[in-house]
Simulated assay, not measured.
Amino acid sequence: MEFFLIAFIVFADQISKYGAIRYLKNRRPYVVLENFLQLNYVENRGAAFGILEHKRLFFIIITLAIIIFLSFYMIKNYNNLSIFTRISFSILIAGAAGNLIDRIRLGYVVDFISFRLKGYYNFPVFNIADTFIVISTILVVIIILFDKIEA
């Protein structure tokens, strides 16, 4: 089941990025909800908030290490991990893989979702892979806080 979840998320991420390149690149942002949500093509050559810009090889190595480590950990401890833990790790792997594909293929990560809280905060532009990385991180924190990693 986890393999299909990973494959589905990576597929959805890559299709959405293809759409962003095709329909948003070199165009004005598409406003979905005024002063709240817009689709805006951005080429992110760093990490969150554009930090460590132009460190492509570093991100490729770190991302591959995380994907390999989590994959082996899940395989080795599969029967000892709760479904909640397996899903958390799977969506982290999927998000990391989605952005890794961009870094290898394009040299940057395609971001296109832009949220704003009018007058308060502009979130960094992100993508579907980023969303799953954040969700998985929150889930892993919950697992750790409640000591639910069985293996």
Rank of each mutant, 00 (worst) to 15 (best):
F146L: 12
F126L: 13
I83M: 05
V31S: 06
D147E: 15
I9S: 06
N40W: 04
L70A: 10
F89G: 01
P29F: 06
I143W: 07
I149A: 07
E34T: 03
K25S: 15
A12K: 04
I135W: 13
R28Y: 05
T63C: 13
V110Q: 08
I15E: 12
R22S: 13
M74V: 06
I91Q: 01
L100R: 08
V141H: 11
L57T: 14
Q14W: 09
I15A: 14
L92M: 05
I9M: 04
Q38S: 08
M74W: 08
E43P: 01
K25N: 07
I21D: 11
L139D: 08
I21K: 15
I135D: 13
I15P: 04
S16M: 12
L100W: 10
T85H: 01
E43G: 07
G98C: 00
Q14A: 05
Y41W: 00
I144D: 07
I149M: 08
I9N: 08
L145V: 10
R56V: 15
I75V: 05
N44P: 04
F59G: 06
V134L: 13
K55V: 10
T131E: 06
L5C: 15
I91H: 00
I135F: 12
N80K: 14
A94C: 01
E53P: 01
G95N: 03
I67G: 00
Q14S: 07
H54N: 11
L39T: 04
I6Q: 06
F59R: 04
S114N: 15
V32T: 04
G107N: 09
I138T: 07
R116W: 11
I93T: 00
F89Y: 00
F58Q: 10
T137Q: 09
K25V: 11
I113L: 08
G19S: 14
D130T: 14
A151Y: 10
A96H: 00
A65G: 15
L81K: 02
V31L: 06
D147F: 12
N77P: 00
T85K: 02
I101C: 06
R86W: 00
M74T: 02
E2T: 07
T137D: 10
V140R: 08
I133S: 06
L52K: 08
N77T: 04
I66S: 05
N35I: 05
L33R: 10
F3M: 09
V32Y: 01
N80Q: 12
A48W: 05
Y41R: 01
I67W: 03
N80H: 05
L33W: 11
A65V: 14
N99C: 00
L70S: 12
F59S: 06
R22T: 15
I60Y: 07
S88W: 03
D111F: 01
Q38V: 02
A48M: 03
E2W: 08
V141N: 10
